[in-house]
Simulated scan of single mutants.
Amino acid sequence: MKNNLICFCLYGSTSRGTDTHWSDLEMLMITKEEVPKKAFLEGLVLVTTNSITEKRLCGILEEPGVEWPFYAGLLKNLVVLEGDASKPEKYYDLARRVPEEKFRRALKENLSELVFESCGRIFSCIARKRYEDIYCAVIETLLEMKTALCLLNCTHVNHDYFEGLQESFKFRKLPERYPVLATRLWRSRSPFGITKNSRELMRNYLYLLKSEEIT
């Protein structure tokens, strides 16, 4: 294993010092050859060791797709426990050197897989009166829109869920009223409010894509 290991790293809330008694322990192995993922319980704490080969990681970083924002943000916040401590910064440099045209191409190629189906599910839930399912569709829509906006802005966020969404509010290219509408949707429990804000956010998102000639 040691000959295969490039670096063994800690990430997530534990690496940032924001973990709690209930936080899982997340680790990443960057290797030369493939190694299976491992997970086990230490008491009630989930310990997960994910792995990725250097070749696949560099491919994701140099040729952006929907995985690029996740891995770029991951590399920014890794703590190396064993192996070559200089590697994460070198990988992150690869991510930062990607030209804008590659991000735009990635967004165009993945556009149909992001936001549209999830947003449609919001209105399907309302039409079927499955109000208990609306909130899941809202979260999916917002997280997918965050990914699309990361690609449009050639950048990433450093956190998950609402904290990561808040980071995206600072991007340069955003749908009109995106911080307000996204916050309302995340916090809303009213089908009427969700319907109104979803329609406006989607309309503004489409206008942004059109203005950026992303179709």
Score class of each variant (00 low, 15 high):
residue 9 C to R: 08
residue 9 C to H: 03
residue 14 T to A: 14
residue 24 D to Q: 12
residue 31 T to A: 10
residue 33 E to V: 08
residue 34 E to W: 12
residue 35 V to Y: 13
residue 37 K to R: 14
residue 45 V to I: 15
residue 49 T to G: 01
residue 53 T to N: 12
residue 54 E to P: 06
residue 57 L to D: 05
residue 57 L to C: 08
residue 63 E to F: 06
residue 69 P to E: 05
residue 72 A to S: 14
residue 72 A to P: 08
residue 84 D to V: 04
residue 84 D to R: 04
residue 84 D to S: 07
residue 88 P to V: 10
residue 90 K to P: 03
residue 98 V to P: 09
residue 100 E to K: 15
residue 100 E to I: 08
residue 103 F to Y: 14
residue 104 R to F: 09
residue 107 L to P: 06
residue 108 K to Q: 08
residue 110 N to E: 11
residue 110 N to K: 07
residue 129 K to H: 10
residue 130 R to D: 13
residue 133 D to W: 13
residue 140 E to S: 13
residue 140 E to N: 14
residue 143 L to W: 08
residue 144 E to I: 07
residue 152 L to W: 02
residue 159 H to M: 06
residue 163 E to F: 10
residue 165 L to W: 03
residue 166 Q to S: 10
residue 166 Q to A: 04
residue 169 F to E: 00
residue 170 K to T: 13
residue 171 F to G: 02
residue 171 F to P: 01
residue 173 K to V: 00
residue 180 V to C: 00
residue 181 L to N: 02
residue 181 L to G: 01
residue 189 R to M: 06
residue 192 F to Y: 09
residue 196 K to D: 02
residue 198 S to K: 07
residue 199 R to A: 09
residue 199 R to N: 00
residue 205 Y to T: 09
residue 205 Y to M: 02
residue 208 L to C: 01
residue 208 L to P: 00
residue 209 L to H: 03
residue 209 L to A: 05
